[in-house]
Design a protein around this nucleic acid. Sequence first.
DNA 1: CTGAAAGCGCTAACAT
DNA 2: ATGTTAGCGCTTTCAG
Lengths: 341, 341
Amino acid sequence: MSKKKEVTIYDIASALNISIATVSRALKNDPVVSKRTKKKIFDLAEKMGYRTNHFARNLRNQKTNTIGVIVHELNSNFITSVLAGIEKVTAEAGYDLIIAHSSESFSKEIANAKNLFHKRVDGLIASLSLETKNLDHFKSFEEKNVPVIFFDRVEQEGNNTVVVIDNDKCGYQATQHLIQQGCKRIVHITSNLKRNVYSKRFKGYKEALADNGIPYDEKLLIINDLSERAAIESTMKMLKMNPLPDAAFITNDFVAAICMRTLKENNIKIPEDIAIVGFNNDAICTLVEPALSTINYPGIDVGEVAASNLINHLKGIGNLQNTNTIIIRSNLIIRKSSLKK
Amino acid sequence: MSKKKEVTIYDIASALNISIATVSRALKNDPVVSKRTKKKIFDLAEKMGYRTNHFARNLRNQKTNTIGVIVHELNSNFITSVLAGIEKVTAEAGYDLIIAHSSESFSKEIANAKNLFHKRVDGLIASLSLETKNLDHFKSFEEKNVPVIFFDRVEQEGNNTVVVIDNDKCGYQATQHLIQQGCKRIVHITSNLKRNVYSKRFKGYKEALADNGIPYDEKLLIINDLSERAAIESTMKMLKMNPLPDAAFITNDFVAAICMRTLKENNIKIPEDIAIVGFNNDAICTLVEPALSTINYPGIDVGEVAASNLINHLKGIGNLQNTNTIIIRSNLIIRKSSLKK
DNA sequence: CTGAAAGCGCTAACAT
DNA sequence: ATGTTAGCGCTTTCAG
């Protein structure tokens, strides 16, 4: 258990008979140090197995070079793409990442926020859980002037900076497409309408109906929690409708896939009896049968944009104060699950 | 931009006219401090918005209370379950987590290891990338006596502690099951045989063939990199075989799902023409058609076991020195994709 | 039960 | 180009 003693700049300095200041400067590649001394220092540091003590440095510098991320789930292509996008940008800029996930729970999200706050992240990127009731747990960041950017599930009131797609338009396009296929009784399966993404998609759905002279029927709106169990229940509810609906616009590809499976188990033909459009464009879309039409929601772009805006702000290049909403391009992808013609 | 000054124990101490030592003790809930002073301190700390400076504490304590995790991908049910298992255990024990992923790249894995080493994690949990050539990048941990536990993709030589399933047996069971269904020309689609998981499953596959008097045919072994493109190529290779194989044991559910799709596109019936068994029991298994038989690989257990062993070691309760290999229970799940009878 | 003081390893202002 | 030194916020002996 006897850990070898850590090598510090003092050890390097005394071995080389120079001051710690010079060592410190050299290690940061400060141009003021002569090439020769620098080389000596680097070589010895390498040989002695020196590693920077980040705690000492951060303690001194009062910044962590770390940015925190809170996501609502780890379990989807969309979220992992967002993370990949964030990582790409932050790594290039030399920032570290701490990733936390709330598992859709409000209390976990609060705990995550508190934790990252205490860890003193320099900035935060977050997507809200399904159950989140308010944004009080992010106030502490604001108070200390730690920038926060929300993406996907956001709260657009107040002066948060948010990165989103035009969910309203996407909902409209999906619904419009189904109507063009001749569908008239279109179910919308979605989740907690407190979340912007779901309420906006719902709004787009209603607008498309209205524009096509189809009256909105609230019985066709099904709200669930995006779990497999809930997806099955929602589908069963749909199957009990009379007359049967002829289409469903479903707010997430996983739920759509479960729904398709359940429909097929009940001898419903897709798209002939019921046409389906999902959301996200996860890998699963081309693995189910028929292939699932969906809205392409490019997570990698969302992640990159969120991270680069945050980092520019931290570096004093951009400013988030006046940037309120950033909208990422998205589009409808038509596959067999919705093609009646 | 003027960040409010951080509150320190000095501020609390002087406001209360006591010493910083007492404040420090109280904040750690040291029983030696009187209840009354403790309460005063807690209340004031709360009111002033005090937050512990982890850098100062860690600098002083020479430990980070953080454990690092390196995974080869974020993008599968299996890995996210492992992470959930790890998180559950570490959170309970009061440890923090830094999660890094190598995207199957050796150089990224080295970078991750170096980074976590410099961050001075107290322990490390890792699964190797597909391309990893050696374990040199973990030597530094060993040198500083930082415990490392490998899971899933491991190197069993040397004295690493590893958490795995009995891949050999799983490969045997999957193959045996296919043989019992009357299959004789069984393709095995897998990945880099340098990785224990794949070589062991391959070994089990060959043993099952041998035990049933079926000669091993190396033309039936297909190795790919687990990407969608590679999965399609592998399937095309399979389709060109003459005579056509009557089954495939595929080392990962995602690849199996792609393979099934490609086969169906080419008018092959599953399981009648070709029976399929995958590996992992990802959510996708019951979403594809027919439902995919697979090996249940319980990631959550793997994560919990790895984390609790690591933490016990850190707390001095258990010891990893003499624990070499921990085997997690796994089992074959039979669904329609392999049921010929 | 509480206080004084040293020191963890590093950076940066100031001095040379 | 290099050195001296104070101090970042905390923990922990040692002393009362």
